[in-house]
Design a protein around this nucleic acid. Structure first.
Length: 731
DNA sequence: GATTTACGCCTTTTT
DNA sequence: GGCGTAAATC
């Protein structure tokens, strides 16, 4: 069978245009993955390109894996090697492990995840003698990450920061980078930044990779950020066989530095570029497509395109308005139960804006006895026991990795208390040593009796010695032991599992299972011929969507995670102002448009049926009273003739159980008028705050003592204040 | 010094 | 509603 016969004319053109820069504008469901994989197959089979000369980058391991499988099914030339398919991040890891030494990076560097990053920031804040209140670590970390996503150095950051915090954050940022370097560690963002640095500073390495990867393919180009863009530029210096695929309407990662200009200005960057549009959709019904198109057409900042399909839509887009969040989620569960009777194996997705929304759906689905799988939330590699064991491995592989060493120094408890740790940290700082080196130094000095006994009790000292010799032992094993052996050694020497077995609580048994699973993962990795470094890299670079199992029939996930996936039935939940679009994005039109794209992404996941739901009132985390909600503006952007209401009518008595939806529980509608408080600050009020000065009230939420105000203070910014405590003065 | 309690903040999205 | 840090208590 001819490869090209399975493509439409535009897809075919995209596959056959092998040389020179090519931009493929691929609408949702237009067969983008098919084009990329066929193109790879075509390059190998028809053009005789050695597979090793092809590099394709994606954003998730899942996408890379899927492409790998599909390419493998198309080409049978694995003897010639395989094309390199990976995520941006794993590609960078490989680059840096191979050639990072040229920019002063050691081969055995650790990769810090968000937890590790936060520990470093906390240490930095403490070292700056600031309290968590004065400089919250979370905020600092998010600003550091934001800076890195925009390729801003601490110095750049310092110069552009305008707020009073900026200076301190810049200092923390600088210190943070220093700590990372001293720990022989890089964070997620560094992987990209350092790869860019390597390719721009070392011409020889740049040439090597330019020659190796003569054909470059980039998926989800609209999501690339500054450093990913630079990376692509640096890899296409000697040749320009670069094919990027993207859709500006699905750009939903600008908060992570994704720059839509990369796609809009592709022709400027590569003047020879050809552009091909894929506008035939093979996924959804025309109705779903029309509804989604109607929403996204309200965006001003887009090139614009028209998707079409030959699939006729017989079913309208349904919508359901529940009394509250619980009712909304019960409706979904109930609907699924009924649907199951006709379509037992149909895949159904429940999509929402924020992870916190998943809780209601989990409860409802469980109540109805439905099995589901949840993407996001706590992933396997984030569990405490798994993180602990990984920390042992990381610390053994890279003793300079102070974060992970500190994580395990007293876990499981071995008598190295906070005080002892603090002393060691002080010693390390005083002599500019890493935690490990300080430990070594301390024990040596003690042996040489250079130390007065007051500094360290005999008990603490022997505990430290034990820990030291344990780590020494593990370090020695790193060189030639396999990962499962290493893990077993750790478990044995620390009595980690023995303790859990002894405890025998449900939680500890679950932990033991996780440990078992980690051992299995290590064995699998070993059988693939991987070493410790590869195993740890893998653990660091897996994402939530990677865990998405296509076989499970009900999937709960965020709209962000859902990108690139498709389902026969999609619920788009919580379509309310404040949720979608999210409150935080209402302040400027660019972020509002991104919310609209997010809505568009969600709608276009649906193949056959799309059901929009919302709650008329919703309880926000701690609030005593549910707050009345307004339907999302995106909702009203859908032409009415495409919609069909399947909600119960307001005020219908609970006793008149509607036959249409058996088992459904209806709630009496309680008009919860917020009692107006006469002392309250109304919207638009001019106020004075003891610290922030003069401002204007922009938003009121909650009632009574819980009233929260959003106040804009010129020169300070937006502040959320509890009215009762803010000490505001009305002017 | 360690465990308990209180308070405060939070939730946007994640490779 | 839940987590983490800071304060309070033994």
């Amino acid at each position: 069978m001819n490869l090209l016969d399975q493509l439409n004319p535009q897809q075919r053109e995209a596959v056959e245009t092998t040389d020179g820069p090519l931009l493929i504008l691929a609408g949702a469901g237009s067969g983008k993955t098919r084009v990329i994989t066929y193109r790879i197959a075509y390059l190998i089979d028809y053009c005789g390109v050695p597979p090793g000369n092809i590099l394709a980058v994606t954003f998730t391991n899942k996408a890379a894996e899927e492409m790998r499988n599909r390419v493998d099914a198309l080409v049978h030339t694995s003897l010639l090697g395989r094309p390199w398919l990976s995520t941006f991040h794993s590609f960078c890891v490989r680059l840096l492990r191979e050639d990072g030494s040229k920019i002063g990076l050691r081969r055995d560097f650790s990769i810090y995840d968000e937890d590790d990053q936060l520990s470093v920031v906390k240490a930095c804040v403490r070292r700056l003698s600031l309290s968590e209140r004065e400089l919250p670590s979370r905020g600092v970390l998010s600003r550091i990450s934001h800076a890195k996503n925009h390729s801003q150095s601490p110095e750049d950051f310092y110069q552009t920061a305008t707020d009073p915090m900026g200076e301190k954050v810049a200092l923390a940022y600088q210190m943070y980078n220093k700590v990372l370097r001293e720990s022989n560690a890089v964070d997620f963002d560094d992987l990209l930044l350092e790869a860019v640095r390597l390719l721009s500073e070392d011409a020889e390495t740049a040439l090597k990779y330019n020659q190796r990867y003569r054909y470059l393919l980039v998926d989800e180009y609209q999501d690339t950020n500054r450093s990913q863009y630079q990376l692509i530029r640096l890899l296409t210096q000697t040749q320009q066989n670069v094919c990027v695929v993207g859709d500006e309407d699905q750009s939903i990662y600008s908060w992570r530095g994704a720059d839509i200009r990369n796609i809009l200005e592709f022709e400027k960057d590569y003047p020879q570029a050809r552009i091909i549009r894929l506008e035939e959709n093979y996924r959804s019904t025309q109705t779903i497509l029309d509804a989604a198109a109607a929403v996204v057409s309200h965006n001003l900042y887009r090139k614009g395109k028209k998707l079409w399909t030959s699939r006729r839509g017989d079913e309208k887009v349904y919508f359901y308005e529940g009394m509250d969040g619980e009712n909304e989620s019960l409706f979904v569960a109930d609907w699924i139960v009924k649907r199951r009777k006709q379509h037992p194996d149909e895949k159904i997705a429940i999509l929402y804006r924020t992870n916190s929304q998943s809780r209601l759906y989990e409860e409802s689905l469980r109540r109805y006895g439905l099995k589901y799988s949840l993407v996001g939330g706590f992933s396997f590699y984030e569990r405490t026991e798994v993180k602990d064991l990984l920390a042992y491995l990381k610390a053994a592989a890279n003793p300079q990795d102070s974060v992970n060493l500190l994580r395990i120094v007293n876990s499981p408890p071995r008598g190295i208390g906070e005080g002892t740790v603090k002393k060691l940290e002080e010693l390390a700082r005083a002599h500019n040593l890493s935690f490990w080196d300080a430990l070594e130094q301390l024990l040596e000095d003690r042996l040489a009796a250079k130390l007065d006994d007051k500094l360290l009790s005999a008990r603490a000292a022997s505990a430290l010695e034990n820990f030291y010799s344990l780590m020494k032992e593990l370090q020695a094993l790193v060189a030639d032991a396999k990962v499962p052996e290493l893990l077993n050694a750790i478990l044995e020497r620390t009595e980690y599992s023995a303790r859990l077995e002894e405890e025998a609580s449900p939680e500890s048994l679950a932990r033991l299972e996780n440990i078992e699973e980690l051992l299995n993962a290590a064995t699998d990795s070993m059988e693939r011929g991987e070493g410790l470094t590869e195993f740890l890299d893998h653990a660091a670079l897996v994402s939530d969507v990677d865990a998405y199992d296509e076989k499970t029939s009900i999937t709960l996930m965020t709209l962000h995670s859902a990108k690139g996936l498709e389902f026969p039935v999609v619920f788009l939940a919580g379509l309310e102002e404040g949720l979608l679009p999210h409150n935080r994005s209402l302040l400027n039109e660019h972020s509002l448009e991104e919310e609209r794209r997010l809505c568009y992404v969600g709608m276009t996941r649906a193949q056959d049926l799309l059901i929009l739901t919302r709650a008329r009132s919703r309880r926000h985390y701690g609030d005593r009273m549910p707050v009345l909600s307004r339907p999302s503006r995106f909702w009203s952007e859908i032409p009415e003739e495409l919609l069909q209401d399947i909600s119960p009518r307001i005020g219908r008595p609970a006793t008149a159980a509607p036959a249409a939806i058996p088992g459904e529980r209806f709630y009496e509608y309680e008009p919860s008028e917020s009692p107006s408080d006469h002392n309250a600050m109304p919207l638009g009020a001019r106020v004075r705050h003891p610290r922030f000065g003069y401002g204007t009230v922009l938003q009121r939420e909650g009632v009574g003592d819980d009233v929260k105000l959003t106040v804009s203070f010129p020169g300070v910014g937006l502040k959320k204040l509890i009215e009762k405590y803010a000490g505001l003065e009305r002017l």
